[in-house]
Nucleic acid binder design. Structure first.
Length: 682
DNA sequence: GCGATCAGAT
DNA sequence: CACATCTGATCGC
């Protein structure tokens, strides 16, 4: 879920995907796609009033997004103020500052984001550099390389900042099966069921959100069966979708919904009420699209998991996986990266840490290994060492800053930068010289550094006064008060099970590792929970055998079985737990010693220079800590590790937990990077 | 009565 | 599975 505040540092008078608070003063609005969490404030009376007063303010989005938006009467008042921009067509927009009369031109390009119908990324080019706001996206590896408009000639454009969908930016979600794999898995499941008889129907348990349409259209196309939905008027001008969906309940594929659809299903009724055909009861299975993810080297995986007598989960994701994000970032090579999403169950600090690691890995390895072939540009630009990460404003800090801010609002342009960003950024620069002895809870800025430190120097963690040098510095603008008290620990980052639900951690805990260790990753289209009783033998199955769907009920199936299956799959991923076994370890230390009231002395657009200064300052405060060396001058030779990555590894051995052995310090650097990349440590 | 916000469910 | 949305409770205007 997006927690992007709406504005970018480089162009703070534009608001994207947020329409409340400070965004009410924007000179132009942008909507990346039609999901509610990106439309906050879009139909609020305050914005409506603003529109009535400021006739030059417009909302820019894709034609499809405009169509979907205006289908709802709630947004009708936008009708004359929406400018639909064609995708992949650079468009110049003149922005007028109503206060000063100042005019500024910016070129915006919409790039397909692959998230839901009409979803786009925004590429802005103007006087403060080129920045990319991804919105939510799912792009396969190499797709960025195929986007003409991300390039100038054969080179990728120099991009100052990327505002990134970090939903799955976590090595735990290293791999998500491709759109095609997921589609085919669901297709074959649906096909195998509905061809049994005309009374066999499938209910697709889809959330009320755009994004499943390509599933519906593909199923309909392949099977010649339209999909029943509650509503379709929003697609009235999209024949390629409209043709494949229907409000006629007499079909074998349903994606209709009802608030109590669970009860309906238990009563062998579809959410639309259908329960029989010509007096013959329907045979209903439910298929719930869910995001399943897998660690590195478990590329072949179960797209479908049976979770009950007549219920299945099917892999489906609207968002890019960790490796896809890594590929994307590695290709773009921005100077700054800002996360748009702090997933629930995670914290802003964790996202920052992971982003740091991603960049660390990319910086060290070079990024060519992530490229697909055809449009491999020569990248002269070296990835920078630092990542800047902007955290969402929380209530406390944003209100705080807005309050103090609005009082000083003489000149909108000068002060219109997102409050926390502006202040924090200045703070970052200012504070380096003076923050060593500070740790004030009301600060809305924290700094994160990645440092490796000696296990004996236990004082690093949680002690903001002991700064370690780092050539990978993260200036982290945060309104999150809690992050101050909650000093992140490396083992919190890696031992994610402590943050998972009781169920899953119990399952993980109780699952003998030997079971997983012997399991093959041979592709199973369907993994039936029946196999659980002898899950150690799953390795002997092959995909063709397991594609059969038994119509008979599997007795004794329950959701726990499902959990175990998934958990065991997870365990094939990377086991980070040995990091807690002592010895040297990497620590990400975060502290927030910065004074948010420090005035801004410099030019906002010179972010890079400031960051370098900040790094230098951080370096001056170096302590005894070991550095993570990042060699960004490294030649871009293809990485054999990634070569392997591109292959399917059918077999996978879970790494053992080396209780006794401590890695040698000189190996740690390499080790950590592999870990961060989701690679297996032997 | 509406909106904003949070917790919880799906 | 940490997708996005809806519901209901609560609070403030």
């Amino acid at each position: 879920m997006s927690s992007f505040g709406g504005r970018m540092r480089e162009y703070p008078w534009l608001s994207i995907d947020r329409f409340d608070r400070e965004n009410l003063r924007a000179r132009a609005y942008f909507l990346s796609h039609c999901h509610k969490d990106h439309m906050k404030g879009l139909r609020a009376p305050s914005l409506k009033r603003r529109l009535e007063c400021s006739l030059k303010v417009h909302l820019y989005c894709s034609p499809v997004t405009k169509e979907l938006l205006l289908t709802s009467p709630k947004y009708k008042f936008w009708e004359n103020r929406i400018v639909a921009l064609e995708v992949e067509t650079p468009t110049q927009i003149s922005l007028l500052d109503e206060a000063s009369g100042e005019k500024e031109d910016i070129v915006v390009t919409l790039l397909p984001a692959g998230h839901c119908p009409g979803s786009v990324m925004f590429l802005f080019q103007g006087q403060n550099g080129t920045v990319l706001y991804t919105g939510d996206f799912r792009l396969a590896k190499g797709e960025a390389a195929r986007m003409e408009l991300l390039h100038s000639g054969t080179r990728v454009k120099d991009i100052q900042s990327v505002y990134l969908d970090t939903t799955f930016c976590d090595p735990r979600f290293y791999q998500i099966p491709s759109r095609e794999e997921c589609l085919n898995g669901i297709l074959e499941l649906v096909r195998s069921w509905i061809t049994l008889s005309r009374y066999h129907v499938v209910w697709l348990n889809c959330k009320a959100a755009y994004g499943y349409e390509y599933l519906f259209t593909n199923l309909s196309e392949e099977l010649g069966v339209k999909v029943h939905v509650n509503k379709l008027d929003m697609f009235k001008n999209m024949p390629e979708i409209l043709y494949h969906i229907t409000t006629d309940r007499h079909t074998q594929i349903h994606a209709c919904r009802h608030p109590r659809d669970d009860d309906y299903l238990r009563g062998n009724r579809l959410p639309c009420g259908m329960t029989s055909r010509n007096g013959t009861p329907l045979r209903i299975i439910s298929v719930k699209p869910s995001t399943m993810w897998f660690g590195e080297r478990t590329r072949k995986t179960n797209i479908i998991v049976r979770t009950g007598e007549s219920s299945y989960r099917a892999c489906f994701s609207f968002h890019s996986s960790y490796s896809e994000i890594k590929d994307f970032l590695g290709y773009i090579c921005p100077v700054n990266v800002y996360p748009n999403v702090v997933p629930v169950g995670s914290t802003a600090d964790e996202v920052v840490k992971i982003l740091l690691i991603v960049v660390l890995v990319l910086t060290d390895e070079g990024s060519d290994d992530l490229f697909d072939t055809e449009l491999t540009p020569v990248r002269y630009k070296i990835p920078k060492h630092q990542v800047e990460t902007t955290l969402p404003e929380t209530k406390a800090s944003s209100e705080n800053s807005e309050g103090s801010h609005s009082e000083n609002m003489g000149n909108y342009k000068a002060t219109t930068m997102p409050m926390s960003s502006q202040v924090d950024f200045i703070d970052c620069e200012e504070s380096n010289g003076e923050d060593d002895d500070e740790e004030e809870s009301e600060k809305n800025t924290v700094w994160a550094q990645v440092v490796a430190h000696n296990p004996d120097s236990t004082s690093i963690l949680g002690n903001p006064n002991e700064k370690a040098h780092s050539d990978l510095t993260c200036a982290l603008t945060s309104g999150q008060q809690e992050s101050n008290a909650d000093m992140p620990q490396w083992d919190v980052f890696f031992k994610r099970d402590i943050k998972t639900t009781d169920d899953s951690s119990e399952n993980e805990d109780h699952l003998p590792s030997s079971i997983d260790a012997g399991r093959s990753q041979s592709p199973n289209l369907f993994s039936d929970s029946d196999s659980l009783s002898d899950s150690t033998h799953i390795s002997s199955q092959n995909s063709s055998q397991s594609t059969h769907i038994s119509e008979q009920g599997s007795q004794g199936l329950d959701s726990q079985a499902d959990t175990v299956l998934i958990t065991s799959q997870q365990t094939h991923g990377v086991d980070f737990s040995f990091l807690n076994k002592g010895g040297n370890r990497v620590t990400v230390s975060v502290w927030k010693p910065l004074d948010q009231n420090t005035p801004c002395p410099g030019n906002d657009s010179d972010l890079k220079g400031k960051n370098q200064e900040m790094n230098a300052e951080a370096g001056a405060a170096q302590t005894q800590n070991t550095l993570i060396e990042v060699n960004n001058e490294k030649s871009k030779t293809p990485n054999p590790e990634l070569e392997r990555d591109s292959q399917s590894s059918s077999d996978f051995e879970i790494p053992s937990t080396p209780d006794a052995e401590l890695p040698r310090p000189d190996k740690l650097h390499c080790l950590y990077k592999k870990l961060a990349a989701g690679e297996t440590i032997y």
